[in-house]
C-alpha cells in the first residue's frame, strides 16, 4: 500500500484517480447469516469529475458511497474483499484516527433529508463552525461561516447564523448542509440523494448550486440518485447498479443515447416523457431482489425481457464492449 503522509505534497495526484473502488465486497452479518450486499463493485473518479450512481432502492448505491469513508455501521457490515483507494490510500486499512481526518476532510457527505441531518438543538452557525474546527481550525470564525453561507446562496447570511435548523425551509437546510460539507474544502463530495426530500422547484435550485460549486471549486462529486432526469444535467459518467453490482458504466451522453444493459433500458423506459402518447407508464415487472436473496446467474434475469435459459445459471461479468462503456450482459447487442 502506498503510504503518503498528509503533509507531503503528492506530485502524482494529477496523474492518478482521486477515488478508485476495486472489486469491493461487503457482507451484512457473518457466517451462515452473512448476506452479500456488495459483490465486486468497481468504480473510479478522477479529480473534478462527476459520477452518478443510479439504481432502485436496495441495490447498494448508498452502501457503496458510505463505504468510502467507512461509515457503514460495522457490525453488521464487514468487508470481505476489495480496496477503496482515496488519493492512493486504502481506506479499508486506515486507523480510526486517519478515518476521522478524511471524513469531512478529503471526502464530505450530504444526505437525503437535511431536516434530519442537522442537529435540531444547535444553531446552524455553530454547526458549520464545528466542521471548520475539525478540519480548518485556523478558519473557525464567523467571517468564514458567513463566506460559506454566501457561497451556497443563502441570502442575508449574517442573520442566519443564529437560526436553529427548524427555523429554516428544507431548501435552506440543504444549503446549510452543503456549506458544512464545503467547510473542509473537500476533494470529493458525496451527495446521497440530496434532493429526494425536497419539492421540485427546490430540487432544481440545489442541483444548479451543486453544478455551479463543482465548476468553481473543482471538486469531484459522487451523486447518488434514482432520478435519471438529474443524471443528464450534471454527470460526466454514470454507473448503474443492480443487486449489489455495477451492471453498466459509461459516459453520460453514451449511456443516455444508447443504453446497452436491459436493466438500464427498462429504467429509462419507465421515465415519463414529454409528448408521449402512451396512456400507462411502462414499469419493470417483479421486485428488486432483497440483499442475501439474489438469484444465481444474472441477478436481473428473473425480470429481464431478453433473458435466455442460460442467464439464470451463468453469472455474467462486466465487459468493456466499447471504449469506456462497460456492460454486465453478454447479450447487449440484442
Amino acid at each position: 500500500m502506498a503510504c503518503v503522509m498528509p503533509q507531503t505534497p503528492n506530485y502524482n495526484l494529477h496523474f492518478m484517480n482521486l477515488l478508485e473502488i476495486k472489486d469491493l465486497q461487503l457482507d451484512f452479518g457473518r457466517g451462515s447469516e452473512a448476506a452479500r450486499a456488495l459483490d465486486g463493485v468497481s468504480l473510479t473518479l478522477k479529480q473534478g469529475e462527476t459520477v452518478c450512481l443510479v439504481g432502485e432502492s436496495g441495490c447498494g448505491k448508498s452502501v457503496t458511497a458510505l463505504s468510502i469513508a467507512q461509515l457503514v455501521p460495522s457490525p453488521p457490515a464487514h468487508y470481505v474483499g476489495g480496496q477503496i483507494l482515496l488519493e492512493g490510500r486504502n481506506t479499508l486499512e486506515m486507523s480510526p484516527e486517519e478515518l476521522r481526518r478524511i471524513r469531512g476532510g478529503t471526502v464530505s457527505y450530504i444526505f437525503q433529508d437535511p431536516g434530519a441531518s442537522l442537529n435540531p438543538v444547535f444553531r446552524v452557525g455553530n454547526q458549520i463552525k464545528e466542521s471548520l474546527k475539525l478540519h480548518r481550525p485556523e478558519k473557525a470564525t464567523d467571517t468564514e461561516v458567513i463566506r460559506l453561507l454566501k457561497l451556497v446562496g443563502i441570502p442575508a447570511p449574517e442573520s442566519r447564523l443564529r437560526n436553529y435548523p427548524f427555523e429554516m425551509s428544507g431548501g435552506m437546510q440543504q444549503r446549510v448542509m452543503i456549506a458544512m460539507a464545503l467547510a473542509s474544502e473537500p476533494r470529493l463530495l458525496v451527495a446521497d440523494e440530496p434532493t429526494t426530500a425536497l419539492d421540485v422547484t427546490i430540487q432544481a435550485q440545489i442541483m444548479d448550486l451543486l453544478r455551479d460549486l463543482k465548476q468553481r471549486l473543482g471538486m469531484a462529486i459522487l451523486l447518488i440518485t434514482h432520478n435519471l432526469g438529474i443524471v443528464g444535467e450534471i454527470a460526466d459518467r454514470v454507473a448503474v447498479m443492480y443487486g449489489g453490482q455495477v451492471v453498466e458504466l459509461a459516459a453520460t451522453t453514451d449511456l443516455l443515447a444508447r443504453p446497452l444493459h436491459p436493466y438500464t433500458r427498462a429504467l429509462m423506459n419507465s421515465v415519463p416523457k414529454l409528448r408521449s402518447t402512451a396512456t400507462r407508464l411502462p414499469t419493470i415487472p417483479g421486485n428488486v431482489p432483497r440483499i442475501g436473496q439474489f438469484p444465481t446467474g444474472c441477478r436481473f434475469s428473473p425480470r429481464c425481457p431478453i433473458a435466455r435459459p442460460e442467464c439464470s445459471s451463468h453469472p455474467p461479468s462486466l465487459l468493456e464492449v466499447e471504449p469506456g462503456h462497460w456492460v454486465r450482459c453478454p447479450f447487449w447487442q440484442t
Binding site: G105, S117, N119
Partner: peptide, 22 residues
C-alpha cells in the same frame, strides 16, 4: 440512530463528541 448522528460522524467528529455532544 438519528441521521444527524451519522452526519456528525461523516464530518469526522470523534466518537466521544458524537455521543456526548450531539
Amino acid at each position: 440512530r438519528a441521521e444527524y448522528v451519522v452526519a456528525a460522524r461523516a464530518r469526522g467528529m470523534t466518537p466521544f463528541w458524537v455521543v456526548y455532544k450531539h
